[in-house]
């Protein structure tokens, strides 16, 4: 499988396939399908300093080839997660990525400082969750705030930091540049696109928060374009995601410049997807005589 070995922020992943935050729990839930160490990396459900109950009302709404979600970062809080789940995730032979969100800078900083006491491989700084009122995405919308939070977290964190970007920003590649300038080790994109749905029978918005985040195959072409633009704009690694549901989709993202890819919504209809993509990429390299998948990275 050495054809897929991929280096990301100093860590050697066995392959460039990462389970996306919020779609893979804490690594255990798909064990009935395949052992999670088949994956190159696993990003935890988004964590915040304090526990969150998540949003009330409908949380999922299917759209044509897409999924609107309004989970609202339901999580046990960084401390409880660290004590309860890190040792279990650590046993999985896969890059351990902790997705960290927050409502304000202090919360992010405190969360990151707790994580300093734990053995993890990478922080994925979530400044792009559209589903919590006060927070997350607000930081990801402007270069200044994205740069600021990246700089402050980098100052205190002993772990490498990958900033997860919002496609709802006016220019996602400008945000990526700002993160790079402020010390980000990598960026991942995209988080969900803000969308909405209306229940015409009851004449009200489907979601209590009115807006929700769109993911799945419906967003893939736009996500791919954003990854392409961003990979051209920065020199730090770009991790690409958005609608990937086959190994061929993964190849597209890598050709567009992604160092690694994440699979999110695609896990739901196909719980074997992680394994299938890793195998599909391996065979693709073999068939084309590539010694390493990096040979096709950014060729477009």
């Amino acid at each position: 499988m050495s054809r897929l070995v991929t280096k990301l922020v100093g860590y050697e992943m066995k392959n460039p396939v990462i389970a996306a935050s919020g779609t893979y729990g804490y690594g255990e839930d798909y064990k009935g399908y395949y052992e999670p160490d088949v994956l190159g990396g696993i990003s935890s459900k988004g964590l915040t300093l304090n526990p969150k109950q998540g949003n009330e009302g409908i949380r999922l709404w299917e759209t044509p080839s897409g999924l609107l979600n309004s989970i609202g970062l339901e999580n046990p809080g960084v401390k409880a997660f660290a004590q309860g789940s890190i040792s279990k995730m650590k046993k999985i032979n896969s890059m351990l990525i902790v997705n960290l969100g927050g409502d304000n800078l202090e919360e992010y900083l405190e969360g990151a400082s707790i994580l300093n006491d734990w053995d993890i491989d990478l922080i994925e700084l979530n400044i792009s969750c559209p589903n919590v009122k006060a927070g997350g995405m607000a930081f990801g919308m402007q270069c200044e705030s994205a740069g600021l939070i990246t700089r402050e977290i980098k100052k205190i964190s002993r772990h490498p930091v990958m900033v997860k970007l919002s496609p709802n920003a006016p220019s996602i590649s400008d945000i990526a540049i700002s993160c790079e300038e402020n010390g980000a080790d990598a960026v991942s994109l995209v988080n969900t696109f803000q969308g909405m749905a209306i229940d015409i029978r009851n004449k009200r918005a489907v979601f209590n928060n009115v807006y929700a985040g769109l993911s799945g195959p419906a967003i893939k072409p736009i996500a791919l374009r954003m990854v392409h633009q961003t990979a051209k704009a920065v020199s730090i690694p770009v991790v690409g995601l958005g609608g990937i549901s086959t190994w061929q989709d993964a190849v597209e993202f890598i050709m567009a410049g992604a160092t690694a890819i994440q699979i999110g919504t695609g896990n739901f209809p196909n719980p074997n997807l992680g394994k299938e993509i890793a195998e599909g990429l391996e065979k693709y390299c073999e068939d084309n005589g590539f010694k390493n998948i990096s040979e096709i990275r950014g060729i477009i």
């Binding site: 729990g25 839930d29 109950q53 998540g54 949380r59 999922l60 979600n69 989970i71 896990n267």
Partner: peptide
Amino acid sequence: KRMACGVGACLGCTCKTEGGN
């Protein structure tokens, strides 16, 4: 409840209970 994954990974189907979510 509406479900996406069915395996416990997405938290889309959360049910409020006396003992928490």
